[in-house]
Nucleic acid binder design. Structure first.
Lengths: 343, 343
DNA sequence: TTGTATGCGTTATCAC
DNA sequence: GTGATAACGCATACAA
């Protein structure tokens, strides 16, 4: 009896009276296999509790059954949501999730990622914004032959490599809502330059304002960095203006929460003295007081779908490859918006 | 020239005129090696850009260079913080992080984890609360021979397998602070039964109240589940009481934020009508208005330290094994606490 | 449909 | 100190 330790494919083959290759075929669901043989092998596998060795398999296949998540410090809640979506997609499969944060400013970023992908030989990677907007990164994946799917705020790649939302459109809708309520002095807290999502959201804002024939002084646009602190500074700049804006659209929830914070710090009332709309619909939006009107960004669904796309040829194309590539965001009405106060 | 694709250990051996094993010794820093031979091999490695194949290595060593994170749905911010801490510890090493959420109610949980560990052959795993409190899980790790470090709110294991905080102690301090301000009707929103952290925090609360000679009607303790929604319900129950509590200690920030939400929904003012203290010091605590007094739980440091402990024998014991096992939490004073209003 | 021989790239054994 | 050879456990090519 050589069956020390964990049973291997050899043990199964010996006990079932077949060759290793046959066992291998059973495991990999080869279609051309006698039903009886298959049943016999499967019984042995179940009996002795055989589990294929992933390392050996990875070596032979030159490929791991790991899904990578590449991201560059967007906010915590978003990364968690994405992870939740991916994990939902790979639940009950043999895939596992490996997390890889990178430093988008770093000059060695591309080389780092390349190194990472070559070393780990992942089955595929999901790339989050904002790094997902970097075309060279996608090019690296293609070069190496690593599957990839990018997430973003607008279409960046072909459908099988992309899952996107329609940010500019939904922001237009949000701003129109403010305008229809009577707001004309609306401030924008923009996201960081270079972020496609920031550009798209700003574009939607500017288009809506322009379409309504409202002229937009440059001072009503304050730059933020998607963080609470920069949001606070931007909101303060906006609220120092005279006349003050009666509404603020912040390019993400953190900065929107910061606007609320800044307003209340000055003793202002939301929404009576100031209406606020955020973007993302993260937990904080519904947890703060008053509950905040915001754009629901279907990040979990997007991530799940992206993961399914990534695994399309594993699942056999039928389902996964038909995953949608566009996920419309929607405006969620809560309590941080009201008509402007009559002066 | 057989050097297609990526260079292997064979290429290095051939070019350097030595055997594979010698190259292997260089890679693994074997002490018994001629300095000249080593230099020669290292030059070739650098010249052709050889990188060891992790899959082959994993197969031969029966062990991967992966660190696992096992957790069961604590809040998002906490998981992200832990990931940040781990990633900080393994930055610039060959280790990668693999994330594994599990279902603590599931009857197959232990088997699932065992399966996961046996399949992936991780270098080690970090276990987050509340599952970290499950001794059988640790036993599974030991059985399999997988390194592990548990995180928790009190000592659960030997120092090399444990990183803990002193929850009951710091909660006592927090409650004493309320009492010193003149509060005598203090409500507790407890965490879920079965969570050690919940028990520790409740213990600290009860001890402080008892020590001050305050009698604690059962009605002043409301059960929550560490989620915003259950916090909301618990806070409502507390605020429906007559007389109302003048202060609430919530066992985590989410429930504390919910208490603030509930109070403001009734038109109450925080801290004038109600003082609130939370636990964790997650982002929401400082982002909401008023900024919330809470207990800072040094989760990132704990996670980093836990990861270093896990990698202790890889790094060579000197540094990592001296990582502290106890991380004291501290009370952060912000604006959600004030003396009780005179009736 | 099934079996045989061989490769994947590393580490371990045990000689020299 | 160093090298030949055998694991490690699975998949692929090609035969049968």
């Amino acid at each position: 009896m050589k069956s020390m330790g964990k049973p291997t494919i050899n043990d199964v083959a010996r006990l079932a009276g077949v060759s290793k290759k046959t066992v291998s075929r059973v495991i990999n669901r080869s279609p051309l296999l006698n039903g009886e043989t298959r049943a016999k092998v499967e019984k042995v596998i179940a009996d002795i509790g055989y589990v294929p060795n992933v390392q050996a398999r990875a070596l032979a296949l030159r490929r791991n059954f790991l899904v990578g998540l590449i991201h560059d410090n967007p906010n915590a809640q978003m990364v968690m949501n994405v992870q939740a979506g991916i994990l939902e997609a790979i639940r009950d499969t043999e895939f596992e999730l490996i997390v890889r944060p990178i430093d988008r400013g770093s000059s060695t970023m591309l080389a780092d990622v390349k190194n990472f992908l070559e070393r780990q030989r992942l089955y595929g990677v999901l790339i989050l914004p904002p790094v997902s907007e970097n075309d060279m990164l996608a090019e690296v994946c293609r070069e190496i032959g690593c599957r990839y799917v990018r997430m973003g705020s607008t279409t960046l790649d072909t459908p099988e490599h992309m899952v996107a939302s329609n940010d500019s459109e939904v922001v237009r809708e949000a701003i129109n809502h403010l305008i229809s309520l009577g707001h004309t002095r609306i401030g924008l807290i923009a996201g960081p330059h270079g972020f496609r999502s920031a550009r798209e959201r700003r574009k939607g804002f500017e288009e809506a304002v322009a379409a309504a024939g409202i002229k937009l002084p440059r001072s009503l646009i304050a730059d933020g960095n998607y963080t609470f602190e920069t949001g606070l500074a931007a909101a303060d700049r906006l609220l120092d203006l005279s006349p003050r804006p009666t509404a603020i659209f912040a390019s993400n929830d953190e900065m929107a929460a910061a606007s609320l914070h800044a307003a209340r710090r000055r003793g202002m009332n939301v929404p009576d003295d100031l209406s606020i709309i955020g973007f993302d619909d993260t937990a904080i939006a519904s947890h703060i007081w008053p509950p905040m009107t915001t754009v629901h960004w279907p990040i979990i669904s997007m991530a799940r779908s992206a993961a399914l796309k990534l695994l399309a040829d594993f699942f056999g194309d039928d389902l996964a490859s038909e995953e949608p590539s566009m996920f419309p965001s929607t405006l969620i009405h809560r309590a941080s918006v009201a008509p402007p106060r009559r002066d």
